[in-house]
Design a protein around this nucleic acid. Structure first.
Length: 491
RNA sequence: CGGAGUGUGGCGCAGCCUGGUAGCGCACCUGGUUUGGGACCAGGGGGUCGAAGGUUCAAAUCCUUUCACUCCGACCA
């Protein structure tokens, strides 16, 4: 394995997988499309997860767990939902293996065929709604605000580490409400929660809005989304929140009695973000030296590298710096001391840069003798010398600075690559040159959207909440625009 | 499912055209010298060459079949 990653500018896709493998975030699993999330990658996921979980708890949601297996018949209860997921379901048809007496191979025992086949959940709406039917009778049972952390399986044709794997980890929220207003508010509140996590925890700026008919979740009335721009100017859907209306309630016959003793179907939402978020962090922040992690999701926020010639030297150095390390840890910072003897400082510098550690503190005799340390920041790749008395203050400021600077770098990049265009010619030219997101008018017709997709590979990523369609025309048909939309090529 | 590519020690590859019994770099082990941007020297261990069949005195190499994975498309969080 070569030491460096393929430069972004040469092959973005190779660059991306190089980083994942070399930063030890994940590895390929033995079955096509599967991924092993390695400890370092899983630590990042854990930090993301904890931050989302905390926010969900604060907004009144509880965690629960529903089964991995779903009766096949459940999937077909909601028409659009089947349509959306049938093509990518793993199906369990048997429950036993046996040794073939002829070949001595392990084979599926034909006698173990299941009466009703079982599918592996591609998402859990259907199992959950089958349970809601049991649990909901009256408006007093509502709302139900559940979330589950789970794995799901979608048998994709083409997979990519973190972005699209056959099995992935996510959180899926499923709420039930007694009225439309409350349910819609829930979907939007969650969207804002996702935006908050993405921007303030992961330092990834997002556009918010709703999905077009063609792009919305199978079974939803409205799909709200957060959409972000990757380093190659392609769009990535980082999270979605759906207002499901009464679709699933009708499909699963979940009714409740209202205050006025009338009967109504339950209103619902569902929403999720997945390990895909890690993929977006890589593509938004990474550079040719590797990962750049925002401090809030960095497993190690600070790595300390003692530079000495002998064990004794290293001991002296660490002793000199001991109080500071204790202070950092006491204030909640995640600090790692890399005192591995067999590796040179240069090797360690490169390794931790690959892994995206925001701050590196180098301490050697040169520093010790001058009552100082050398601090290297990953966001700018700059080094500075800081006097020992100022270290604590400087580090705390830097943690915040780096978090903000990564967000601002990403925001500038996104904003400078969103273009407003007025002609389809210009649209096609920009798209073919891979120039980024295009903001333009759209007549609201799904056919228009489809033709544009076929001709340019760009899709409507979102219909932003803020609309300005005065005098705007549809980029394709020239008809008066119904919406102002964002087009882009996407992952 | 279409197109392309790759399967050779843990990883990355060469060898294949023109058959002669496997090599390089990294990693690993031992010892020593090193350490402020991927250290060096010496010694050492590890591979039925993806699988099956065939041709041949002889196959990593030629032929046939097959499997797997990766990348690019259609599908998707």
């Amino acid at each position: 394995m070569s030491k460096k990653v393929t430069p972004k500018s040469i092959d973005h896709s190779k660059w991306y997988t190089d980083i994942i493998l070399k930063a030890e975030l994940a590895d390929y699993g033995p079955v096509k499309g599967t991924m092993v999330i390695k400890p370092y990658g899983y630590s990042i996921w854990t930090l993301i997860k904890e931050s989302i979980d905390l926010k969900l708890k604060k907004t009144g949601h509880s965690n629960a767990y529903f089964p991995l297996f779903i009766p096949k018949s459940f999937l077909s209860k909601e028409a659009e939902h089947v349509e959306g997921f049938a093509k990518e379901c793993a199906v369990i048809t048997h429950h036993r293996l046996k040794t073939d007496p002829n070949s001595n191979d392990l084979i599926v025992d034909p006698d173990s065929k299941l009466e009703e086949e079982v599918i592996v959940r591609p998402t859990s709406e259907t199992v959950i709604w089958s349970m809601y039917k049991k649990w909901i009778q009256s408006y007093r049972d509502l709302p139900i605000l559940l979330n589950q952390w789970a794995n799901v399986v979608r048998w994709e044709m083409r997979t990519r580490l973190f972005l699209r794997t056959t099995e992935f980890l996510w959180q899926e929220g499923h709420t039930a409400h007694s009225n439309e207003i409350e349910a819609k508010k829930e979907a939007i509140d969650i969207l804002n929660l996702y935006k908050d996590v993405s921007e303030n925890i992961m330092a990834i700026p997002v556009l918010t809005g709703i999905k077009s008919e063609a792009e919305k979740f199978a079974g939803a009335e409205i799909t709200y989304c957060i959409e972000s721009m990757m380093g190659d100017k392609k769009a990535l859907q980082a999270g979605t929140s759906h207002y499901l209306g009464q679709n699933f309630a009708k499909a699963f016959d979940v009714k409740f009695q209202t205050k006025n003793n009338k009967e109504d179907y339950v209103y619902a939402t569902s929403w999720g973000v997945s390990t895909r978020l890690i993929g977006s962090a890589i593509m938004v922040h990474g550079d040719d030296k590797g990962l750049r992690l925002p401090p809030k999701i960095a497993p190690h926020q600070i790595v300390i590298i003692p530079i000495g010639k002998s064990d004794d030297d290293v001991k002296k150095i660490l002793n000199f710096f001991k109080e500071h390390i204790k202070n950092f840890k006491d204030s909640g910072l995640r600090v790692l001391i890399d005192d591995r003897e067999d590796l040179s400082p240069g090797f360690k510098f490169n390794e931790w840069e690959m892994k995206g550690v925001p701050i590196r503190i180098e301490v050697g005799f040169r520093d010790l003798n001058n009552d100082q340390v050398t601090i290297a920041r990953r966001d700018t790749n700059k080094k500075e010398v800081v006097s020992i008395s100022k270290v604590n203050e400087r580090i705390h400021n830097l943690i915040d600075e780096i978090q903000i600077s990564l967000f601002e770098q990403a925001l500038d990049f996104m904003n400078s690559n969103i273009f407003e265009v007025n002609s389809y010619e210009e649209f096609k030219k920009l798209m073919s040159e891979n120039k980024g997101f295009i903001k333009c008018g759209w007549d609201g017709n799904s056919k228009t959207e489809l033709i544009i997709k076929e001709e340019t590979k760009a899709t409507i990523r979102c219909i932003p909440f803020e609309q300005n369609i005065k005098n705007k025309k549809c980029i394709f048909s020239g008809k008066p625009a119904k919406f102002e939309v964002i087009f882009a090529k996407s992952y």
